[in-house]
């Protein structure tokens, strides 16, 4: 099944990723508190909120780059603490706000994840992934000499190379100009549809959330303030 933009998959679909009572405190300061959140297979969920509201902290907890101090996360109903961290991070892939490409070629970057589990991609597979993100012929290029938009596309291809079940996107267009932003948005939507991927995207922009997601969660001061469709939230329902 391939959900289209703006639609929330039916309630019968199982929860792919679920946060239950998730929280994190650092030095006594709560960053996130009592987050209950479920995303169904194939659903696109946007998390929006002002700077410092805990959006990025939430994504970091979802693929366990940080450790929750309360609650936990379930992937396909399994407590993620029971899943080896490297396997979890492969299955719950994350595209970071600052892409941080590794020194070397674009090809080396895209093949990084599969190489970690001794399943290296062929050059043909790497070229196919690059073509999919609009960077055909970029494989031998130096990753340090790309534009912001190209860098983010390589970062997306690098995450997709792991074939994740859930895709976490942390403000992937925040450092891009309008044209590059629209390009990345369109690309993300196409890929999510093609792969029927479950996706959580963090943004500070409600119109962008409306363009990408079927459901939106508003975070404020580390807590969920509202949940609904983009239309409901835009019209204040």
């Amino acid at each position: 099944m391939s959900p289209s933009r703006g639609q929330t998959p039916g309630p019968r679909l199982p929860l792919k990723l679920e946060a239950r009572g998730l929280g994190r405190e650092v030095a006594g300061k709560p960053l996130l508190h009592d987050i209950h959140l479920g995303v169904r297979q194939g659903e696109v969920l946007a998390v929006i909120g002002p700077s410092g509201s805990g959006k990025s902290s939430l994504l970091r907890l979802l693929n366990r780059l940080d450790e929750p101090t309360a609650g936990t996360v379930y992937l396909n109903g399994v407590d993620y603490r029971e899943i080896p961290p490297r396997e979890l991070r492969r299955r719950v892939g994350m595209v970071m706000q600052a892409p941080h490409l590794f020194p070397g070629t674009v090809s080396e970057n895209v093949g990084f994840g599969p190489r970690q589990r001794n399943a290296p991609l062929s050059i043909g597979q790497i070229e196919a992934l690059l073509e999919r993100v609009g960077l055909a012929g970029y494989a031998p290029r130096d990753a340090g000499h790309l534009s912001g938009g190209e860098t983010q596309r390589v970062s997306l291809a690098r995450t997709l190379a792991n074939d994740p079940e859930v895709l976490l996107l942390d403000e992937p267009t925040s450092a891009l100009d309008d044209e590059a932003e629209r390009g990345i948005e369109a690309l993300v939507l196409e890929i999510i549809r093609e792969r029927s991927m479950t996706c959580i995207i963090v943004t500070h922009d409600l119109p962008q959330a409306a363009r990408l997601a079927g459901r939106v969660v508003i975070l404020e001061a580390g807590q969920i303030k509202a949940v609904g469709t983009p239309q409901e939230l835009i019209h204040g329902k």
Partner: peptide, 16 residues
């Protein structure tokens, strides 16, 4: 740290 965490997020072992 960004590069280190990017590697971890892609499933790399800490040593790598």
């Amino acid at each position: 740290k960004g590069l280190v965490e990017a590697a971890l997020a892609l499933g790399a072992a800490p040593a790598k």
